[in-house]
Write a protein that binds this DNA or RNA. Structure first.
Length: 629
DNA sequence: CTAGGGTTAG
C-alpha cells in the first residue's frame, strides 16, 4: 500500500529531476554511513528512490566511497521493483571493479538475462568482461561472449577491447591476439591492451614487435614497453627506449617515469635517476605515491639511502599511503639499517598508515639482515594478529632466512615443513644458503637432494651446493655437482659487472680484456693486490673455479672477477673520494666481498655493490651486510 | 540525463 502511494507520488513528476536537485547534492555530500542512511530514508519517504537517477547516485556512494558497503548497496538494488538498464550496469560495474566480488557482476548479469528485460547493451558487456577478467573463469567469460555475439555487440569497439583485455588478464594472449586480428574496428587502446598482454607474460619481444608496427604510439604505448623491459630485467633496453621516447615520442607522464626510475634503480644509474628527479620537479608531472616510492627506491638502490630518506621526509609524508613507506623501509633493510627500518615502521603505525604484505617483507628482511630474531618473530606474529595479513610464502621465506642466518637451522627447516603451502625452490634455496654460511654439510646435502627434485631451472641452487662443498674442502663432491650442472645443459651465467661513468655504462666480464683501458686496468689490479695484502687481506679460494687445480692460478682468476675489474676501473677514472657504484649480475663471492672491504679502507672510498640478491655498502673496511648474505 | 576501454614497487 505504502509502495503504491509512493509510485503514485513518483508518477506525478512530469520532468522528473534536474541534475542540481537538492537531494542529489545532499547524497553527493555524504561523509559517513550514517549520513547515507539518512539520505536513503529521505529518498524513500519522498519516493525518489524509485527514480533511477537518485537511486544510481545512492548506489555509487555505497560502492565507491571510502565507507562503501556492498551488502547495503545490494539490498537497495534488490528493493527496486524493475531496475532500468542504467541501474543494472551501475551494479555490474561496481562489482567488476572490486575483484573479490566480481562473481556478483555475473549474478546480476544472469538475472538480467533471465528476466529478458532490459536487454544488455554494449556498456553491460564492457563491465561484465572486466569482471570476468578480474577473477572469473574462462567458462563464464566465454558464456558471456556468446551473449554478446547473439546481440550483435561483440564487434563494438569497446566490447572488443574489453574482450581482448579479458583474455590478456587470463594470460591467454594468443586468444586475445585472435580477437585483435579478427576485429575490423581497432584503435590505440586495442594495440596497447594487446601489448600489455604480452608484457604481462614477459613476452617482451612480441610486445616490441607490435609496438614497432604501430602507426602512431601514445604515451601509454611507450610506457608499457618500458615497463615491460623493466619487468624482464632488461634495464638498459628500458632506458634506451626511454631516451628514444624523449627524443621522438610523446611527453612522458608519471607512469613512464615510475618505470624509468625502476630501471635506473636496478641498473644503479644514479646520474640518470637524478636527471629524472629534476625532470619531475621542473615539469608538470603530478607526484603520486607510486612515483615517490620509485624515486625513494632509486636513491636507495643507488646507495644514497640518506638522500632517499630526505626525499621521503621532504614530501610531507602524511599525504601518502603505504607505498613510499615501504620503499624507505625496504631501502633501510637492504642497507643493513635494521634499527632505522623498525623505527620507520613504528612511525608508520603512529601515523596510522596501514601496512600491507610488502611492508612486512621489508620489515622481516630488516630483522633478518640485522640478526634480530626476537623482533622478527614478533612482527611475523603481529602481521596476522593485528593487521589480518595472512603470511604468504615470501614471509615464510623471510623467516627461514632470519632463523637460518642466526644459525637456527633446525627451526628454519621446521618453518618450511609446517607452513600451509607447498615449499618452492626459492625457500629451500634460502635454507641451503644458511647451511652454507654455517657450514652444516649434513643438512646442506639433505636440502640439496630436495632441491634436485625441482631440477632444470635451478642452476643457481646447484651452484650454491657446489660452492658449499668446496668451501668445506670437499672438492670432489663439488666437482660432481658441477659436472651434473654441465650435463643437464645448464651453464652458469658468466659474471658481469657494470659501472656508470658520466651517464655511460662500462661493462666487464670475468677476466675481461676487451676494454680499451685493459692494460692500465690490469697493472692497477696488480698494484692493488699488493696494497691490499699489506693491509692484511688474505685471498680466499673456497668458492668456484674448481677446474683450476693450481692455487696460484686460482688466485689470479679470483683477482679478475668482474666486480674487481669494475671497481678498479672506477678507482682509476674518478676523483678521490667519489663513491663507486657497481652492479653485478651474480652474487658477490666471499673473496670479492673481503677484498672490497679492504679496498674501501685502503683507497678511502665508499663502494656500493648491488649483486643479484642484495646491496652491499662498503665503507671504511666494513660492509652494511655485516658479512651475512 | 547520465555511463565505456590501456601503462605504476619486493
Amino acid at each position: 500500500m505504502w509502495i503504491l502511494n509512493i509510485k503514485r507520488y513518483y508518477s506525478s513528476f512530469k520532468r522528473p529531476l534536474n541534475s542540481n536537485h537538492q537531494l542529489l547534492s545532499l547524497l553527493d555530500s555524504c561523509k559517513s554511513m550514517d549520513q547515507i542512511k539518512q539520505s536513503h530514508a529521505l529518498l524513500i519517504t519522498t519516493g525518489l528512490i524509485l527514480h533511477p537517477i537518485p537511486a544510481i547516485t545512492l548506489l555509487k556512494q555505497l560502492t565507491g566511497s571510502t565507507f562503501a558497503s556492498f551488502s547495503y548497496a545490494q539490498l537497495v538494488f534488490d528493493q527496486i521493483p524493475t531496475p532500468d538498464l542504467f541501474l543494472y550496469n551501475t551494479m555490474i560495474k561496481a562489482y567488476a571493479l572490486t575483484p573479490p566480488l566480481c562473481s556478483k557482476s555475473l549474478v546480476i548479469f544472469r538475472s538480467m538475462i533471465r528476466v529478458s528485460s532490459p536487454s544488455p547493451n554494449r556498456y553491460t558487456f564492457v563491465f561484465v568482461f572486466k569482471a570476468c577478467g578480474n577473477g572469473l573463469g574462462v567458462l563464464e567469460g566465454e558464456q558471456v561472449r556468446v551473449h554478446a555475439v547473439k546481440l550483435g555487440l561483440e564487434s563494438n569497439l569497446f566490447v572488443t577491447n574489453g574482450l581482448i583485455r579479458m583474455y590478456a588478464n587470463w594470460g591467454m594472449v594468443d586468444e586475445a591476439r585472435r580477437v585483435f586480428d579478427w576485429s575490423v574496428d581497432k584503435d590505440l587502446f586495442s594495440w596497447n591492451i594487446l601489448i600489455g598482454g604480452y608484457v604481462g607474460l614477459g613476452e617482451i619481444d612480441q610486445a616490441r614487435e607490435l609496438f614497432e608496427g604501430m602507426s602512431d604510439r601514445d604515451v601509454v604505448s611507450w610506457s608499457t614497453i618500458i615497463a615491460g623491459y623493466v619487468q624482464v630485467g632488461c634495464y638498459v633496453e628500458a632506458l634506451d627506449v626511454f631516451h628514444e621516447m624523449l627524443r621522438i615520442g610523446p611527453t612522458p607522464n608519471e607512469f613512464t617515469l615510475t618505470s624509468a626510475l625502476a630501471a635506473c634503480a636496478n641498473q644503479v644509474a644514479l646520474d640518470q635517476g637524478r636527471w629524472i628527479h629534476v625532470y619531475i620537479d621542473k615539469s608538470e608531472i603530478m607526484m603520486n605515491e607510486k612515483l615517490l616510492a620509485s624515486l625513494i627506491d632509486m636513491y636507495a638502490k643507488c646507495g644514497e639511502i640518506e638522500f632517499a630518506s630526505k626525499v621521503f621526509y621532504n614530501e610531507c609524508s602524511q599525504k601518502w599511503k603505504v607505498w613510499p613507506w615501504n620503499a624507505l623501509i625496504g631501502g633501510f633493510a637492504m642497507h643493513g639499517k635494521s634499527e632505522e627500518a623498525i623505527n620507520l615502521f613504528e612511525e608508520m603505525r603512529i601515523e596510522k598508515v596501514s601496512p600491507n604484505k610488502v611492508t612486512f617483507i621489508a620489515l622481516l628482511n630488516a630483522c633478518s639482515h640485522g640478526n634480530m630474531v626476537k623482533e622478527g618473530r614478533g612482527y611475523f606474529q603481529l602481521m596476522a594478529s593485528s593487521y589480518g595479513i595472512e603470511p604468504e610464502i615470501e614471509h615464510y621465506g623471510c623467516m627461514v632466512d632470519l632463523l637460518g642466518r642466526a644459525g637456527l637451522l633446525k627451526e628454519a627447516e621446521d618453518v618450511i615443513l609446517n607452513m600451509p603451502m607447498a615449499p618452492d625452490a626459492v625457500i629451500w634455496g634460502a635454507l641451503l644458503g644458511a647451511c652454507r654460511i654455517h657450514k652444516d654439510i649434513e643438512m646442506g646435502e639433505r636440502i640439496g637432494k630436495v632441491l634436485k627434485e625441482f631440477d632444470s631451472k635451478l642452476i643457481g641452487c646447484h651452484v650454491l651446493l657446489a660452492n658449499m662443498y668446496s668451501t668445506s674442502g670437499r672438492w670432489n663432491e663439488a666437482k660432481v655437482v658441477r659436472e651434473r650442472i654441465k650435463i643437464s645443459g645448464g651453464r652458469k651465467t658468466p659474471g658481469c659487472s657494470s659501472i656508470e661513468l658520466n651517464g655511460v655504462f662500462h661493462q666487464f666480464l670475468v677476466g675481461d680484456r676487451s676494454h680499451p683501458q685493459t692494460k692500465q686496468l690490469y697493472l692497477f689490479l696488480d698494484e692493488m693486490k699488493t696494497k691490499l695484502k699489506n693491509a692484511g687481506y688474505v685471498p680466499e679460494f673456497g668458492e668456484l673455479l674448481l677446474d683450476i687445480d693450481d692455487e696460484e692460478d686460482r688466485e689470479t682468476a679470483l683477482s679478475k672477477h668482474s666486480e674487481k675489474l669494475a671497481i678498479a676501473f672506477g678507482l682509476i677514472n674518478t676523483t678521490p673520494g667519489t663513491p663507486i657504484r657497481i652492479v653485478k649480475n651474480l652474487r658477490v663471492c666471499s673473496d670479492c666481498h673481503q677484498a672490497t672491504k679492504f679496498i674501501s679502507k685502503v683507497y678511502e672510498r665508499e663502494i656500493v655493490v648491488r649483486d643479484r640478491i642484495r646491496y652491499h655498502h662498503f665503507k671504511d673496511g666494513s660492509c652494511s651486510c655485516k658479512d651475512y648474505w
